[in-house]
């Protein structure tokens, strides 16, 4: 066992292929960044829509959020990569080619917009109505209230949970290798095919993700605590 333990912790293989692996990690970050922007944009729209006075708007946005919160990311990414191009080709009457990268960004962005929309909704709703009422009684317009009172507070309240969702999103980027996006897991399996040494490779990959995620989570924790102390969130 100790021989295999030594082997699995022998990260020299990692070091040997560090450039390839770093390029893979960069892909993860790139997918993450694009998906995060998409998720945030959609979440803002859907989250606010869930608080609309219009029942139809509320219903549609709720269906959207529930649908994507309850769909496995893997199923969604496969569906976007295989089914969506065909549907779009038929609808637009042209051949639609979807790159793995685009499919990954779309799928992850939409999937996490579901979670984030809930965060947005909860953040905005958590602001006591009394704050708006105070603004109204001082003669402010609804738009001013939204811009100067609601949004600044809502953003602060949402931040810890939203950051936590982004960490989950980064973790989820690990599955993009399954539709041949050349991320770190893809590179790891390519190297494995070549070198046939799964022990250090998969252990190393696990450790790497672990370190990145733990570092990010700790950072968020520190920031959240600091914000809470300042009375922000």
């Amino acid at each position: 066992m100790s021989e295999t333990l030594r082997q699995s912790l022998d990260l020299s293989l990692f070091w040997e292929f560090r450039y390839t692996l770093l390029a893979g990690l960069a892909q993860n970050l790139y997918v993450f960044a694009c998906a995060a922007v998409l998720a945030l944009a959609l979440a803002l729209i859907v989250g606010l829509a869930r608080l609309s006075a219009n029942r139809a708007v509320r219903a549609v946005s709720t269906v959207y959020a529930e649908l994507f919160r309850n769909t496995p990311e893997f199923v969604l990414i496969i569906w976007v990569y295989y089914v969506l191009p065909i549907l779009l080709s038929r609808m637009l009457a042209t051949k639609f080619n979807m790159s793995p990268f685009l499919a990954a960004v779309l799928a992850l962005g939409v999937a996490y917009s579901g979670f984030l929309s809930e965060t947005v909704r909860a953040g905005v709703q958590s602001i006591p109505r009394g704050h708006s009422e105070a603004g109204l009684s001082l003669g402010m317009t609804r738009f001013q209230i939204l811009r100067r009172i609601i949004i600044p507070q809502a953003v602060r309240r949402m931040l810890p949970e939203a950051l936590s969702q982004f960490v989950s999103l980064f973790k989820a980027t690990s599955i993009v290798s399954l539709i041949a996006v050349p991320d770190i897991m893809y590179q790891v399996s390519m190297i494995n095919v070549d070198q046939m040494r799964p022990l250090p490779l998969y252990t190393g990959a696990a450790l790497l993700f672990c370190l990145v995620i733990i570092a990010a989570t700790q950072l968020i924790q520190i920031l959240s605590d600091r914000w809470r102390k300042r009375g922000w969130a």
């Binding site: 295999t4 333990l5 599955i175 399954l178 897991m185 799964p198 993700f209 733990i214 989570t217």
Partner: peptide, 21 residues
Amino acid sequence: FARATPILVQLLWVNYVWPEL
């Protein structure tokens, strides 16, 4: 560790590394 590692990575690790270890 259990929370920070993505499930795919854990699957591959348990499936390929554990039997040897």
